[in-house]
């Protein structure tokens, strides 16, 4: 073994990562080469110097910082709104499967025709809207978010429930119904968040209206909307956001405490370097406070104003009601 080869093995030798035979060769070389022995000695010293570098403590508030950043990068809390058909991978759909699908459609049409010809066999399976079980609770605003300070503690937060409804309605005159539904927002002290009227195939008009009404008027609004036409589907959701709410509120309190501490520190500091550092920290903290206040306001409005989404359309051709009773006219 020459010095060059020995040099390549030094690091592994220090880690006891050489095979027994290589190690023996290496040690034999060391015995006859003082230069390599000296080099190994200083290499070992370097390794021990690097090993003795102290571990750095994690900066204060690091966990909070990471969690805020993660929350900001977090995609929408609900699953992505991909329609069911788009999730299906058609490329995996083999020829046999296509044939099977065609058969199903063929027999399905035959069945429909049969039901059309013999209406007596068509069951009257009218859609029964689900009853609303969750009653809107009164919204008690315990946390002041408009001002500069959170006056109440996290413990003071009552249950925060955000109500929303989604309804599909069939009406004879879509435009008139859309106007009527929109006017319900104002009647109930709310506002129209979205309103869209689209003309589809064969001049078929449909509308989408999204209302926001005070939580107390939520149930009444849903009933009034339902009276505008035939309710095809109705979905009421009560989302308990207390946990998220408490979470952001406690974050806000923590950040405001931090802000106060930084301000105190700033008053005591005389070194320009430190002042610059503290100012930078302060900026960071204040940016986070702003972001969290915005989130809290968003939660507040979710709770204070319930969403009522309404889709309006005209019934399809009456004969289709035989296939799917829900599509028939009123």
């Amino acid at each position: 073994m020459n010095c060059r080869q020995a040099r390549d093995l030094m690091s592994a030798y220090l880690d006891a990562a050489l095979s027994p035979s290589l190690r023996q060769d290496f040690e034999e070389h060391l015995q006859e080469c003082p230069a390599c022995t000296a080099e190994l000695g200083s290499l070992a010293e370097v390794v021990s110097l690097v090993r003795s570098l102290p571990e750095k403590p994690v900066p204060d508030g690091f966990h909070q910082l990471v969690m805020t950043a993660v929350a900001a990068a977090h995609p929408a809390p609900r699953a992505a709104k991909v329609p069911l058909w788009a999730r299906f991978d058609f490329s995996r759909f083999g020829r046999v499967a296509w044939a099977a699908a065609a058969l199903v459609i063929f027999f399905g049409l035959g069945l429909a025709a049969g039901r059309y010809l013999f209406p007596a066999s068509a069951g009257s399976t009218a859609y029964v809207p689900p009853s609303v079980t969750a009653k809107p609770a009164s919204y008690d605003a315990t946390v002041a978010t408009g001002g500069n300070t959170v006056t109440d503690t996290v413990a003071g937060i009552g249950r925060q429930v955000a109500y929303s409804a989604k309804m599909d309605l069939q009406v004879q005159d879509v435009r008139a119904a859309a106007a009527a539904v929109s006017s319900l927002a104002e009647q109930n002290g709310g506002y129209v968040e979205e309103s869209k009227i689209t003309t589809g195939w064969f001049g078929r008009v449909s509308a989408h209206v999204k209302l926001r009404v005070p939580q107390a008027k939520f149930q009444a609004t849903v009933d009034q909307v339902g009276a505008q036409g035939k309710v095809i589907s109705k979905e009421i959701t009560a989302e308990d956001i207390t946990a998220s709410y408490v979470d952001v509120t406690s974050k806000l309190i923590a950040l405001q405490t931090q802000e106060q501490q930084l301000l105190d520190l700033l008053r005591q500091t005389t070194s320009v370097d430190d002042i610059v550092k503290i100012q930078k920290e302060l900026e960071d903290v204040r940016a986070q406070i702003e972001a969290i206040k915005a989130a809290i306001q968003n939660y507040d409005s979710l709770v204070a104003y319930s969403a009522v989404e309404v889709n309006l359309s005209r019934p399809l051709f009456p004969w289709l009601s035989v296939v799917w009773p829900g599509l028939g006219g009123p």
Partner: peptide, 11 residues
Amino acid sequence: SRLNRARQRLR
């Protein structure tokens, strides 16, 4: 090999 070279360089 990287470790060896890195340590040698540090030395």
